[in-house]
Nucleic acid binder design. Structure first.
Lengths: 201, 201
DNA sequence: CCACGTTACCAAAGAAAAAGCGAAAGTTCA
DNA sequence: TGAACTTTCGCTTTTTCTTTGGTAACGTGG
C-alpha cells in the first residue's frame, strides 16, 4: 500500500476517529472545519488521494459515504472461531453458533487456532481466571509445562498444565485446591496448546 | 455494509433502543414523533434506506415489523499505540518508538486507548503477571475498585486498584507482599483505567 | 538555476442525494 | 367494519459532493 503524506495521514486519522465516535463518516465540510480548510475542493482532493492510495472507499456522490478499508482497522488481527467453554473437569460446552472473535496477529501461531472461554478457577495460579479467553493452537503434542486442552478417556475435556512422567502423563491444575490427574498416555489426547490469553473488564 | 448518514444512524439507534425497551418495534408515527417529523413518508423513506443498506429488515406492510439485522459491529481489531512499561513503584519507561499493537475491537472503548506492558508482579492476585499487556483507556477519573494507572506526585507511575476514602485515595496493589499507598487526592493524578489484558506465551 | 511533478489551497457554480411535507390509498387484524 | 399501520405520489428545502480554474510552495533530476 502506498505511503501517505503528512496531511493525508492526519486526515485519515481524523476519519477513523470520527467514524469510531459517531458511527457515521464526517461530511467534507466537517473535515474542512477540523483542519481549518475553507474550500471543500481541498478536502475532496484529499479524499480522492486517500482513495487512490487504497485507504478509503467512497460511493459516488453519496453523503458521508467514506469507509475505511481494512488496512486501517484490522490488518493485524485475525478472526478465529470461538468454540465454547472449557472448565476443569467438564466437557467442552461446544457453542453451536459460528461465533468468531478477533485476535491480534501476534497472539496467533501458524497453525489452526481457536478460542475458548474459561470457566472456573482451575488455573488461577497461572493468572487465568473465570471468563478469560484462551487462545489455543491446535496441536497433538506438547512440551512439559505447557498449558494444554486435553481430552481424557474420550469424554472429559480440561485445561491443565502438561507433564510427561515416565510413560504416564500428569495434568496439573494451577489451583492448590485441586488435584492433579495422572493417566496413561493412551487415555490422554491433546487437543491444543494455550498460546495466549485475553481478558475484558 | 454500507455507511450510514447522521440521520440514519440516529434513527437506527432509536430503533435499537425502542426494541430493547419494549420488545417490539415502534410504528412509523412513533419514530416520526421522536424526531419531530410530521410526515410519515419521511420516516418510511428512512426505514427503506436503512433496509437497503442492510441494517434492518421489514415484512411488507406489517405493523411494527422492523427487525435489526445482526449489526456486525465489525468484530475487527484496532491498532493502538504501545506506550511503554508500567511497574509498581517506578516511572513508566516510555518507549519512544511508535510501536503499536493490534487489539480486538471489543476490548477497546470509545476513547483514547493505549497499551502498556506490565513489569513485576504487583497485580498478581488480579491475575495480571509480569509481561502482560494491559489495555488502558485514557481517563482522569475512576470508580472504586477499578484498576488504574496513577501518577503519584508528578513522577512515579504505578498500576494499582483505586479506592477513594474520605478525601484521600488508596492505591491498593494486588499482592499481599506489597503495601497500599495512601495519598491526598491532590497528589494523585489518574492516567487511565485498565479495560483489558492480553498475554502471550 | 530551471522545468516539472506533487501537494496543498481557495472560491464558486452545478448537480445529486438526503431529508421533509401533506394527503390519499391500501393492508392487516381484532 | 374500524382502528392502527404502512405505502405511495408529487413537490420543496437542505445538505453534501463534484468540478472547474487558478495560485503557491517544495523537492528533484538535469
Amino acid at each position: 500500500m502506498q505511503p501517505l503524506t503528512k496531511r493525508q495521514r492526519e486526515i485519515l486519522d481524523y476519519l477513523q476517529e470520527f467514524i469510531q465516535q459517531h458511527g457515521y463518516a464526517p461530511s467534507l465540510e466537517e473535515v474542512g472545519q477540523r483542519f481549518g480548510l475553507s474550500s471543500l475542493a481541498t478536502v475532496h482532493k484529499h479524499l480522492t488521494n486517500l482513495q487512490e492510495k487504497g485507504f478509503i472507499r467512497r460511493s459516488w456522490n453519496r453523503s458521508r459515504s467514506v469507509e475505511l478499508l481494512p488496512a486501517r482497522v484490522g490488518q493485524r488481527a485475525i478472526e478465529v472461531p470461538l468454540m465454547g467453554y472449557v472448565a476443569a473437569g467438564s466437557p467442552i460446552e461446544a457453542i453451536a453458533s459460528n461465533e468468531t472473535i478477533a485476535v491480534p496477529e501476534d497472539l496467533v501461531g501458524r497453525r489452526d487456532t481457536y478460542v475458548l472461554r474459561v470457566k472456573g478457577d482451575s488455573m488461577i495460579d497461572e493468572q487465568i481466571r473465570d471468563g478469560d479467553f484462551v487462545i489455543v493452537e491446535d496441536r497433538k503434542t506438547a512440551d512439559n509445562g505447557e498449558m494444554v486442552i486435553a481430552l481424557l478417556g474420550g469424554h472429559e475435556v480440561t485445561l491443565k498444565k502438561f507433564y510427561r512422567e515416565n510413560g504416564r502423563i500428569r495434568l496439573q491444575p494451577a489451583n492448590p485446591a485441586m488435584q492433579p490427574i495422572i493417566a496413561d498416555a493412551a487415555n490422554v489426547q491433546l487437543q491444543g496448546v494455550v498460546v495466549g490469553v485475553m481478558r475484558k473488564y
